[in-house]
């Protein structure tokens, strides 16, 4: 337990410690030399330049998250196309037969000729 006298003694000791460590000229000189060196580097280094302007494609790519995102989207699209062409019935079964029903029996892969003679469009309900 610290009594008042001890406390006063400690406070006196703390007071004596304040400012007891004034930096010498040598230390000040070293610190200022460091400062001059760093300051020279700071003022010599050119400010970081903004990157050269990107075209509209670059802007679009950046918007969706850069080229990695583009490759992901492209890969997903190609995979979907490949599955649709190679196994259309599988896609229809995943939809629970909804595509077949909504297409009015034309299914997911109409005859290619139906695309321009209009029969696929006419028979479809959609």
């Amino acid at each position: 337990m610290i009594d008042d006298r001890d406390d006063a003694g400690l406070e006196a000791l703390f007071r004596a410690a304040r400012g007891a460590e004034a930096p010498g000229d040598d230390l000040v000189a070293r610190v200022l030399a460091d400062a001059a060196e760093v300051q020279a580097e700071l003022t010599a280094a050119p400010a970081p330049r903004p990157r050269a302007g990107r075209g509209w494609l670059g802007g679009l790519v950046q918007t969706i998250g850069g080229w990695p995102a583009v490759s992901g989207v492209t890969l997903a699209g190609l995979a979907g196309l490949a599955i649709g062409f190679s196994a259309p019935d599988l896609v229809d079964s995943w939809s629970g037969g909804q595509i077949w029903t909504l297409s009015g029996g034309a299914g997911t892969m109409p005859e290619i000729g139906a695309l321009w003679d209009g029969t696929w469009e006419e028979t479809g309900d959609v």
């Binding site: 400012g19 007891a20 930096p23 000040v28 400062a35 700071l42």
Partner: peptide
């Protein structure tokens, strides 16, 4: 100011802050 190359800033900051840093470290 220091970052902008002002020559007096380093000395002023050293005068203000170095004694505190030294005192803290010494104790």
């Amino acid at each position: 100011l220091f970052a902008n190359g002002d020559p007096g800033a380093a000395r002023a900051l050293t005068t203000r802050l170095l004694p505190r840093a030294l005192s803290h470290a010494a104790r």
